[in-house]
Design a protein around this nucleic acid. Sequence first.
DNA 1: TGCCAGGCCCTCTTTAGGGCCTT
Length: 205
Amino acid sequence: MCLANSVVVLDFETTGLSPDNGDRAIEIGAVKIVDGEIVDSFQELMNPGRRVNSFIEQYTGISNKMLLDAPSCEAVMTRFASFIGEFNLVAHNASFDKKFLDAEFERIGHQYRGQFACSLLLSRRIHQDAPNHKLGTLVEYHQLPNDGVFHRALADATMTGYLWLQQLETIKQHQPQQAVTFDKIKKITSMTKAKVMDYIKLIQK
DNA sequence: TGCCAGGCCCTCTTTAGGGCCTT
């Protein structure tokens, strides 16, 4: 049985939206959660081998100058592979981060065993009353700890980690006799919204 | 700034279209 309270929560900053269009990672941030506590973190800039456009510089605060002396994606991703080990993985809109993780790992010939879960899909199901499911909105909605920094990898990964723990607590409150396993989370996120409400009676906040 | 992508999900749907999310 694999509990959902021991995971690695990760977030990429990238040059764009699609590795299929040649976009690369420029920063990876992650927190390691064990038994519901953040016990470790990872953050590194990486040089994508190309200039990032002005929008990305402004959006992330990561400048071309900052990336000039950063280690290569390959070097950083090799260290990140060691960091995640065989942990299951969580990200906000995981399909996006999984694309980049798969693309960057493919470049170094690394395969990982962990499964992915998505805090955005989970939020859409168990907090259907939220104004929207953007990370920033959910941080404010749930009054999660934050330092006011957004769109940097470790900051976003840390906030997503707190969001994940909040989501596990919501599920646990309504099924206190059952362990919240990673498989249960995957099951909930694969349900329709209507079925989730039948499966688990939810408080709204 | 929101074009570029793509998965998810809703509906005035399924022979489709468009909004939500991520950078």
